[in-house]
Amino acid sequence: MRILIADDDPDFRGLASRAMRREFEGAAITEIGDRAGLDAALAAPQGPDLLISDLSLNWIDGFSIFDEVRRAWPGCVAIMFTGTGDEEVAVRAIKAGFDDYVVKSPKQLRRLAAAARAALTRVETRRGLEENRDLLTQELYHRLHNNLQLVVGLIAFTARSIDEPVARRRLDDLGRRVQSLSLLQERLYRGGDFRRVDFPAFLGQLTEDLIALDGRGVATRRTLEPRMLPVDIAVPLALIANELITNALKHAVAGAEPLVIGVAFRSEADGAPVLEVADNGSGQQNSEAGSGLGGRLVQRLAQQIGGVVEVGSKDGGGRICRITVRNLARPG
C-alpha cells in the first residue's frame, strides 16, 4: 500500500499519516508539502494507491494535485481532506473524480481512515467486476467465433450437396457473408477492445481472403488509412465491403490489361469514413449498386449507418463504388 498525503500544514500531514498507518499496517506513506515533493512523488517508479490532498495549499490547489497524480496513475484512489471548502467544493470534488470528501479536523481522522478504507474497497470491487466482465466477454466472443465457423461449414457442406447452380451460388454467397462477420469478430476478440475494431486491418484481410477464394490471381491495390471504428458502424460496413469486393470479382471481366481490384479506406476532412472499391475491368457498369440481392443489401446496410452510396464509371475504364458514412463526423 502506497499513500501520498499532500498538505502544507506539517502538523496535519503528521496526523493524517498516523491515522493511515493505524488503518493500513505497513503502508509506505509519502508526505508532500511543496512542489519539489510532488515532483519527486510523480517521478517515482511505482504509483500510489491512495492520494489524500488538502484543497488550498500555499503553492498549489488540491484539484491540480489530483489532476497531475491521476494523469500519471489513473487508478489512484483520491480523497479531499480539507477545512476550507464548502458544499459546492465537495460537489465539485466528487464531479472531478475524487472518491470522497472529508472535512478536515483532528476529530475527523477516524472518518478519514474509514473513508480511505471504503474507497479502496469500492475500487477493488469494481476492478474485480470489470475483470470478470472482460473474461466473460472474451469467452462469449470465442464461442461466437466458433459458432460462426460452424455455420460457415454447414453452409459449405449444404452447398456441395446441391446440384442446382443458382441455389448453390446463393448458398456460397451466404457463406461468404457469414465468413466476413466471423473475420470481423475475430479482429474484435484479438484486439481486446470489444467496442471498436481496427477496420483497415480487417479490410485488408477480407480482401486477401476473397481474392484467394476467387482463384484467378487477381491483383489488388490497397490504400488503407489507420482508423478504429465503433462496432455498430464496423459491422454493416464490413458486410458492405464483402458485397462490393465480391461483386467486383464476379462481374468485372479483364480486358487488355490484367484485372485489378482497388480497395481504399480513408477519412474525409470532417472525419467521415469512406470506403471505395474499384475495378479496371468491363462488366456491370450501371449507376446503381446493383439490382440483385447484394445491391439491395448494400443499400439497406448503408441506410442503417447513414451512408451515402455513389457508383459510377472509373477513369480509364471499370467501375467504382464509394460509401461515405455521413453520420460519423468524428474519428472513431
Score class of each variant (00 low, 15 high):
P331S: 05
R117A: 10
L171A: 08
N58P: 07
I323D: 04
S267R: 06
I52G: 05
G312L: 13
G83W: 12
P48A: 15
T246F: 09
E257N: 03
P236C: 14
R143Y: 03
G204L: 12
A113P: 02
R266P: 11
F81R: 00
G85N: 05
Y101N: 08
V102P: 02
E268T: 11
V309D: 04
R71N: 10
K104S: 09
G318P: 02
G97A: 07
E23H: 01
L150N: 06
R13I: 00
R143I: 04
H251R: 08
G262E: 05
D172E: 13
V253Y: 07
G75L: 08
V197A: 07
S64W: 10
E130A: 11
A219S: 15
A269C: 01
A27C: 15
I162M: 09
G290I: 04
L112P: 08
R187C: 13
V152A: 06
R127Y: 00
I60P: 09
R122C: 12
E124D: 03
N286G: 15
V277N: 05
L237Y: 05
G192P: 11
T223P: 05
Q205R: 15
A28I: 03
E87P: 08
G306K: 10
T246I: 13
G26Y: 00
I3H: 00
M228E: 13
I240G: 02
L293F: 13
R177A: 10
P74K: 09
E139M: 14
R170C: 08
L140T: 05
E131G: 02
T207E: 12
D173C: 10
V178G: 11
Q284S: 03
V231E: 12
D11F: 14
D100H: 02
N242H: 15
S105K: 08
G295Q: 10
R122D: 07
L4M: 07
G128K: 11
A36Y: 01
V77A: 06
R222E: 14
G97Y: 03
G14K: 09
L275G: 01
A44D: 03
R2Y: 00
L184Y: 03
L57W: 04
R13C: 07
T324N: 06
E164H: 06
L183D: 03
A302V: 11
A201F: 06
E23T: 02
G318V: 02
L148D: 02
P106D: 09
G97V: 04
L244G: 14
N247V: 09
